[in-house]
Each structure stands twice: as C-alpha cells, then as structure tokens.
Design a protein around this nucleic acid. Structure first.
Lengths: 212, 212
DNA sequence: TGAAAGAAAGTAATCAATCGCTTTATTTTG
DNA sequence: CAAAATAAAGCGATTGATTACTTTCTTTCA
C-alpha cells in the first residue's frame, strides 16, 4: 500500500486573519475582473476556502463590499494625506499627493474599478457612502491646500478653488481612465508628472494678469 | 358572464422601430440603475414587450450592448464634433466641445454609467472596443485642436498637447464623477463653465515664460 | 395566407446563502 | 496537567431565487 498520504491538515485561521485576507483577495482580483462579476466562489477560491466557509467570516456579500470599501478608503487617505503633510509648501504638497495617489493605484490596479463600480450603484449603500465620503474628504483637502497656497503666495489669489479641486481630481481620473483604455494601469506613473505639470499652470500666475 | 374584455389589440411594430426604442430604453434606464444589473426583463418591460419578445429583435444580450455602445458613440461624436466645427478659433472650439459634451450627458445621465461600465470589463468585447475607439478619437480631436490653436497663436506653443488632452478629458470625467457623488448629474451644466475656465489656464500663456 | 411580431411558459445555468456534519482550537474542570 | 467540554473554523452538498435564452403557440398585417 502507498504512503498513507497524510490527511492534509487544515490550516485553521482566525476570523480576523480570514477577513483581511479576503479583502486583499478582492482588491487583487479586481485588477483583472469587473467587481460586479466577482462571485463568492471565486473569492473563496483565491483565499483558499470553500465558498460556504466565506460566510463564517462575513454575514453576507454586502458586508464584504463594505469592508473592502473601508480598507481602500483608509489606505488611500492615510498614504495620500501623510505625504502631503511632509511638505510645507502647498504646491509641493499637491504634487506629492498627486504622485502618491497615482503610485498607490499603480500598485493596486483594482482600486479604480472598485471605486467606480461603487459609484455606479444608485442609492446610498454603505459601501457607496464610504467612497463618497472619501472623495469629498479628499476634495476638501485639496481646497484647503489651495487656500494655504494663496497665503504662501504660491497660488494665484484669484483662483476658483472649488473648480480647481474638481479639476485636480479629474486629472487623476482622466489619467486612470486613460490607463483603462490603454489597458496598462501600471504605466501611469510615467506620465503622471506630465499631467500634474500641465495642471499646475491652473494655480500659478494668471495669464491675463501679467505681473505689474 | 362578464364582458368578454376585448383582447387588447397588440400594436405590432417593425424590428427597426423596436431596436431603436430598446436602445433608448437602455440609455434611459441607466440613468438610475447600474448597467450590470439591468435584466432583459426590465428592459423589455420598459419598451412594453414581453421578455422573450426582445430576442426577436436582438440575437442576444451582448449584441444589444454593442448596439447601445454604437448609438452612444455616434451621438456623442456627431454632436460634439459638429459644434467644434462651428468655431474657427481653436480655443473657442474646445470650449464649445466641452460644454456640448456636458450638456449631452446632462440630458442623458445614464451615459457615464454606460461608458464606465464598459471600460470596467477586462478584455476586448465589441462594446468596449467601441467605447475605447470613441475616447481615442476624441482625444485625437483635442490634440489636433490644440495644435491648430498653436498655429493661430491662441495656445501656448510650449504646451504638452498629449498631456493637455488627457487633462481635458479628465476635466469632463472629474465633473461627471463629481455629479455621481453628489447624485445630481443634471446640475453639471451650471458648474461646467467654471471648470473649463480654470482648465483654459493650461493652454494659455505659460506663467514662467513672460511674454518677451 | 404566410411571414413577422408577440405572449407565455419552459430550460439550463449561475449564484448567494444555508445546513448538517467534521475537524481544529480553546477553555473548563477533576 | 490531562481529559472532557465548548466554541470556532471548515467542507461539501443543497436550496431557492434569478436570469439569459428557447420553444410553442397565437395574433397581426401586408
């Protein structure tokens, strides 16, 4: 008789470990799959669990999406805001935020799909609420940096800060969508500085107000 | 016995009529529903057909998506390009395109969801191809307008046209996403001019190159 | 009158969630 | 400290609901 082929000990893990592994698996899977087509079976398989076992750690699928949105929000906010605070000049902070954001996305290509996927849903699901609040928060940060820049005389005082903040976020989104069209999210980091450079013209000296 | 309750005359229509009615129904439904959750039953109901009858006019659901993508591409391209051609100054053409695009979206709030939904899908489905080609086409138009603007001395000759085109599309997308966050796509038209105004600083005289 | 348009019922597949039961980990207790 | 007891993590099968698409038969109209 052949070797008894040990009964493949199951590697039990705590719910917390499984939860974070599952969240990472979802983020990872979204790099190459539309979130709305992600099945619990596919996710469980990626984590190394049976489909049913997933529900030992999340009460339902919606709760999983909420956790994923929370993770993304936390990571993004933390990383982007922290690099901004390392610069004392507002314009440098804005540039650092921009590049950090693109870098974060380049390392986690599934994130745009996740966030856009949530925004697609109408209504006020908990996951969508998190994404919305994160974006609003982000926009506020940009606005206050622009205002700080005005005080520091590094930003045109006549700037329309609200509109500039929308354009700032749009620059990131345009870059990301451009990456989705081209198919290579990871190469975004190369062109990101060029995009920011041209955006930066918007908050520097106004063209129709030549220096007196 | 009660009245025979007349057999409710059916209004037969040609396949072509049903096809365009179906496409419009999809665009309309996407205004308040994630495209990936749209069922053939829901669409048929909107058109006023039984679910099965839909397949008399489209061989399958993918073919319907392809038709919808084609309709959107055609409408958008036609409207946006035609207003651009009504202006001889490149900068004015860019502004008119921008406002026409936002206006079109404001009148068809489902369109961003449709296009983003297609871009979410990985691979090279026919519908995604159409969306991708439309965006690429659009970007090319912006680039050539910027180059024309340089000849007309209405655009800074030192501009990074490729990057500016990405920023231009990003400005639109940022505005749209902003509308999705706020929930009211239709109010975009009010702030659109402000966004374009601040974007326009990017292609006007460069700040660090005071006119010689 | 026959071909196209439609309704209504049916089919096979998919998927989130549940269930019964087993295996591992932790806690209680003699 | 070991053995018993409880709790937690896991599997595999199943269930019920949903969905794209098909089939059968009926109605319209050119």
């Amino acid at each position: 008789m052949a070797t008894p082929l040990e009964p493949t000990k199951r590697a039990y893990q705590s719910t917390e470990q499984r939860q974070s592994a599952t969240i990472e698996a979802v983020v990872h899977l979204c790099a190459e799959q539309d979130p709305s087509t992600l099945t619990t079976a596919r996710i469980a398989n990626e984590v190394g669990l049976s489909q049913g076992a997933l529900f030992k750690h999340f009460p339902n699928k919606n709760s999983l999406w909420k956790s994923v949105a929370g993770w993304v929000s936390e990571q993004l906010t933390q990383r982007v805001f922290s690099v901004a605070d390392q610069h004392k000049h507002a314009d440098q902070a804005l540039e650092a935020m921009f590049l950090a954001h693109i870098g974060f996305i380049a390392r986690h290509p599934g994130i745009p799909r996740l966030m856009l996927g949530e925004l697609q849903k109408p209504g006020n699901g908990p996951a969508k609420r998190i994404v919305r609040e994160t974006l609003t928060n982000y926009r506020q940060k940009v606005i206050s940096l622009l205002n700080l820049g005005i005080e520091q005389q590094r930003v045109t005082p006549t700037i329309d800060a609200d509109a500039a903040a929308v354009l700032y976020l749009g620059a990131i989104q345009g870059l990301v969508v451009q990456g989705m069209v081209g198919g290579d999210i990871r190469s975004l980091e190369k062109i990101a500085p060029r995009i920011f450079r041209i955006f930066s013209a918007c908050f520097q000296e106004a063209p129709d107000a030549p220096q007196a």
